[in-house]
């Protein structure tokens, strides 16, 4: 870390050092320390669980009706628990930025919209319609796309495109491909992306540890 003892230097070297210090600190302030990759992995697994459950116990009305609400309730509970544990483990050291709040807002509102949409479709028994399934994939694509634009993160932009392609493909392919498309989206767009994000977070933390050492 920089030596902060010298206070009032005005030589050219001092001024150049000030410029370098500002650049380093601005970049440091923008570096995100939020751990979010696990949330994608969690929701990928949570969304695959009811599909697996229905495959294991086929032709059961009870499983068909309740597997999704139970899985979503479990997902919400696990996410809140995980976030509470992470908050407790990390120190109180934190910063909040407009960018961070924007990303959180995008995903929170996407989650809420998807949940309300899902609840409406389930209650009205219209969840089987192809447009319902396509819209769900589009919601996730929109959240990924918005997040990618805010973060200027190409990898997430690619993931958004994959979700959108899946949503469009559902309109053109027969309903029997729904499961394959859904499972592929979950494996690549949720679990795969989440694992990639976790790897990046781990690498950033290691780099930060080296800088602070």
């Amino acid at each position: 870390m920089a030596n902060f003892e010298a206070e009032g230097g005005t030589t050219r070297d001092d001024l150049v050092q000030r410029v370098a210090l500002m650049e380093t600190m601005i970049a440091e302030g923008r570096r995100s320390t939020i751990r979010f990759g696990w949330i994608f992995v969690l929701w990928g697994l949570i969304d695959l669980a009811p599909v697996g459950w229905q495959l294991v116990v086929p032709h059961s009305d009870w499983v068909e009706i309740w597997s999704w609400p139970i899985a979503i309730a479990c997902g919400v509970a696990i996410q809140f628990l995980g976030m509470a544990i992470l908050r407790r483990r990390s120190s109180v050291a934190c910063s909040s930025s407009m960018r961070g709040r924007s990303i959180s807002a995008v995903w929170a509102m996407m989650g809420l919209t998807a949940m309300l949409y899902f609840a409406g479709a389930m209650i009205s028994h219209k969840a089987w319609q192809i447009s319902f399934a396509a819209a769900m994939l589009m919601f996730v694509g929109m959240a990924h796309g918005t997040s990618a634009l805010i973060l200027r993160w190409k990898a997430q932009g690619v993931v958004a495109c994959v979700w959108w392609i899946g949503g469009i493909a559902l309109f053109f392919l027969s309903y029997r491909y729904w499961l394959q498309i859904f499972a592929s989206e979950m494996c690549f767009g949720m679990i795969g992306f989440g694992l990639y994000a976790m790897w990046l977070e781990r690498r950033n933390r290691a780099a930060e540890g080296q800088t602070n050492a």
Partner: peptide
């Protein structure tokens, strides 16, 4: 230098706590 470092950190965030500023600087 330390004040400049703190202001440069704060310019990119809405708010930051003392511990975060201490750790970063």
């Amino acid at each position: 230098k330390l004040r400049l470092a703190v202001l440069s950190l704060l310019v990119g965030v809405e708010e930051a706590d003392f511990t975060w500023l201490r750790d970063k600087t």
